[in-house]
Design a protein around this nucleic acid. Sequence first.
DNA 1: GCCGTTTTCGGCCCGACTGTTTTCAGTCG
Length: 577
Amino acid sequence: MSDNRSVAEAFEELADLLEITGANAFRVNATRKVARILNDYQGDLREAAEESGGLESIEGIGASSADRIRQWCASGNISEIDKLRSDVPEGLIELLHISGIGPKTVRRFWQEAGITDLQSLKNAIEEGTLESLPRMGAKTIANIAESIAFAEQASERTSIGIALPVAEELAQALLDTGHADRVEYAGSLRRGCETIGDIDLLATASDASRLVSAFTTLPGITKVLAAGDTKASIRIDAGIQVDLRIVSASEWGAAMLYFTGSKEHNVLLRQRARESKRRLNEYGLFPDDGEEASPQSRGIEPIAGSTEESIYDALGLSWRPPELREARNELEQTPTLIVDADVRRDLHTHTTASDGHLSIEDMANEAIRRGFDALAITDHSRSSVQANGLDAERLIAHVENIRRVDASMKDIKLLAGSEVDIHADGSLDYDDEILAMLDIVVASPHVALKQSPKDATARLIAAASHPHVHIIGHPTGRMIGRRPGLEPDMAAICKAAAAHDTALEINANPRRLDLCDLHVRLAVQHGVPIAINTDAHDASHFDFLRYGVLTARRGMLTAELCINAWPIDRLMEWLDR
DNA sequence: GCCGTTTTCGGCCCGACTGTTTTCAGTCG
């Protein structure tokens, strides 16, 4: 694990411990914010710690957090966390992460019922000892028991590759009931996050209560968590929670803004509204007259609210693409981000020659069907034995096949390539003379993904500096939620890639999304060319493109820097260089 | 704990829903 992530986790734990001990909520929030900032931080934390005032210059990190980070850098731990750990039973932290149980409840369980972990909570529920606590009725206890059961069998977050199609189906299902006028998904899904906690749907309807009852009786529901006049939550059998909020058309923009988040972005906007004596909530942007009761409940007319644009405009900001609403560089100028339609070709795909499911012809026809002007066939190299990688002899025959099919097809340009393994030491899996005969070389790490950051950096710099390499494929080799992959000094990789005009790939497979959004941002800042490829092994895998584009947009990628979006002549020149 | 062309102290985003109360605390997003 990288230093930055380790310290971020320490601060996350500190926030949990503070919450359980009943610390000031603003202090807890500030601590969580520090954890998030450290997690996003792309610089060298140790370097910043050594520089006088280096840490304090990062917005959101004050003197005491800076001291704690320096302490961590020097000794590997933080004394306040150690102190709290000795006071608070370790098992309480996992209770905090169960839906419906918050810090106050954890604290009461601990201090008033002697509960110290999940098991003792389950025992207390079974023995009925919780009911003696105030404000702890039978229904609350039953809900907690159910949340525990759910948490024990469900994984924490869902891949965007699963959630996005489900959200689109649900939105269509609600429209099909005839009770909704408009339904769209919002939340982390709309922001294009790689994983999502739940699906947020926003709707307009002439009869909200009928839509709520239609929603809570959709097929495939395992539990209705809440059902109010304008808001309802369900859990569906895919194990995902889905929230529906029904608003009027005049509130649509404010609600979309609020429901899309991120929470931190909303806070920024609301702070900005307050600075100019206005008040932003999910019903609109209102003048702030100092009254506590909500303005919409007092019939006050909003300044803006029907569209997101109108609200940003009234706050003196330009509309912000959802992918960039993460409270990172929010005031930075937004370039025109790449869109799906900009991508004209896929430069990393497989066929039956290695571990793909379709022939060269079938892949080419699928690419034509999707409107691509070119397709690179890049089967695995010899070391990827598990993927039926090609030795030099098979590769030469395969290249001949690709060129023969290419000659027979008018509507697409086929590029004969390879996805060449990058060995642990940075050398490649084919000799230079073999590589030289290929149209395109994608070099990817597949093994030795646990090597040290130092070795990983040297390995990837060597590959990015190789004269025959065009693209570094899935640079870290991570699998989301399963393995972290390499953790190189990405800034150093970007410098090498920029110097040698080598592209870094965003592998669009939703299980990978590698580069991740923050690495894309770094690469874009270094002017590194970026490839967005699906790594398709089958026709349906071309659908992954959208996830790659969302990740690219989160990294502020423009079409200009994306080699898949260039005019074909420019690409061919670049490949030939 | 963080922050400051109003403040170095005193603020810190805002509302819906539930379950428990009988006016509201806690949780969530």
